[in-house]
């Protein structure tokens, strides 16, 4: 029975031979078969929809303060957190059914703010890796392909950046970018970036900061990959046809090493998300009142004894997002290289 079916599979595959599957097609199939990864994709899609249609979905405005409702919570939240005892039962919690997750200490709707917070986290999840890829892959390509003293300088630079406390660097960058408003003449590039940052609620410089501090791993990985394909015949062929180094790097080497790089970068996405949350936590993230999960956790953590809902709902959203990205990253890696399952 078993041999029969395996024969059948072999036969079917033979029939498929005229149109073989590419690496990406078969990887995609393996990814789809990974239930956890698919679940993760759906969670990310869900949050993406929340982010895109936040204006339509959110029940209120994220800035509006209803001071009469400050620190209030609906009944179901008090049931969920048994230590939150409503006033009617001799406790201290104001019951207000208008706010589904409750209201924070300024009377702002927590649910609305969680929904809007999705925007920051997802944007960081997209833009952070892109910045890191741009810097890291560029440096890695140059370093690996040119070799010699260029390679040496770039790799020493990478070493120094590695040993440098990321936290300090990112905080200094924030401090450097932030208070520059008004320092630049109107119309200059500095002024343009400042306005851009202001209009994105302070997100631009977070992206820049995260990207600048996260490219090192990418540079090392890219360099290693370049070294492994640099001596291939197709590179030699391109060179003997007179292609310029730039063209060889971008047209011939890059497409061949992109797979592992993208997988490695996908795996680091949760780190970007938690970086942003951390920055907002210490008050260097988005400008208030733009909601960010990190800032909400930081504000809510102060009142964790009395109003756990204020910190734990944004924490749950943050957790779900990171969880989903981790599953998708793992799934993608398994799909592209099944032998690597569970490895770093």
């Amino acid at each position: 029975m078993a041999t029969k079916s395996s024969h059948k599979i072999a036969y079917l595959e033979a029939a498929d031979l005229p149109k073989p599957q590419s690496l990406w097609q078969s990887a995609f199939k393996r990814l789809i078969r990974n239930r956890l990864a698919v679940m993760g994709i759906f969670v990310i899609l869900f949050f993406a929809l929340l982010a895109i249609f936040a204006e339509q979905i959110a029940p209120r405005d994220f800035r509006t303060q209803v001071l009469a409702a400050s620190n209030s919570a609906p009944l179901w939240v008090t049931k969920l957190f048994p230590t939150m005892i409503p006033i009617s039962e001799g406790g201290y919690v104001k019951i207000n059914e208008d706010f589904f997750f409750g209201a924070d200490n300024l009377g702002r709707d927590i649910m609305t703010r969680v929904i809007y917070g999705t925007r920051v986290s997802l944007l960081v999840a997209i833009v952070g890796p892109i910045v890191a890829l741009l810097i890291g892959v560029t440096l890695g390509l140059i370093s690996g392909y040119l070799g010699g003293w260029v390679d040496n300088i770039i790799m020493r630079l990478t070493d120094v950046f590695y040993a440098f406390p990321t936290l300090l660097f990112i905080i200094l960058l924030m401090a450097f970018f932030r208070p520059t408003t008004g320092r630049f003449e109107p119309g200059s590039i500095g002024d343009f970036f400042n306005r851009l940052d202001g209009s994105t609620g302070g997100m631009l410089f977070i992206f820049v900061g995260i990207g600048i501090t996260s490219w090192m791993q990418m540079a090392r990985l890219t360099r290693g990959q370049v070294l492994s394909v640099r001596e291939m015949e197709y590179v030699l062929a391109a060179r003997s046809l007179g292609a310029s180094p730039t063209k060889i790097m971008l047209r011939h080497i890059l497409p061949n090493i992109l797979g592992p790089i993208i997988v490695a970068e996908t795996l680091t996405i949760p780190r970007y998300i938690s970086y942003e949350a951390f920055l907002s936590f210490i008050g260097l993230g988005v400008n208030p009142p733009t909601p960010s999960w990190g800032a909400m956790i930081s504000e809510g953590a102060v009142a964790i004894r009395d109003y756990p809902n204020q910190a734990l709902f944004p924490a749950l959203a943050l957790f779900l997002t990171m969880f989903a990205f981790n599953f998708v990253g793992d799934g993608l890696r398994d799909a592209l290289d099944p032998r690597m399952r569970g490895a770093e």
Binding site: F81, T83, P270, S274, A277, F278, F281, G294, I297, G300, A301, I304, R305, P308, A311, L312, A315, L318, F319, M322, F323, N326, F327, D330
Partner: peptide
């Protein structure tokens, strides 16, 4: 994977609430 997805910024308040409060 659960552990990697729970940075201390989430785990901290959660532990405080469960074991402390």
């Amino acid at each position: 994977i659960l552990g990697v997805s729970i940075p201390s910024i989430i785990l901290g308040p959660l532990l405080q609430y469960i074991f402390g409060v």
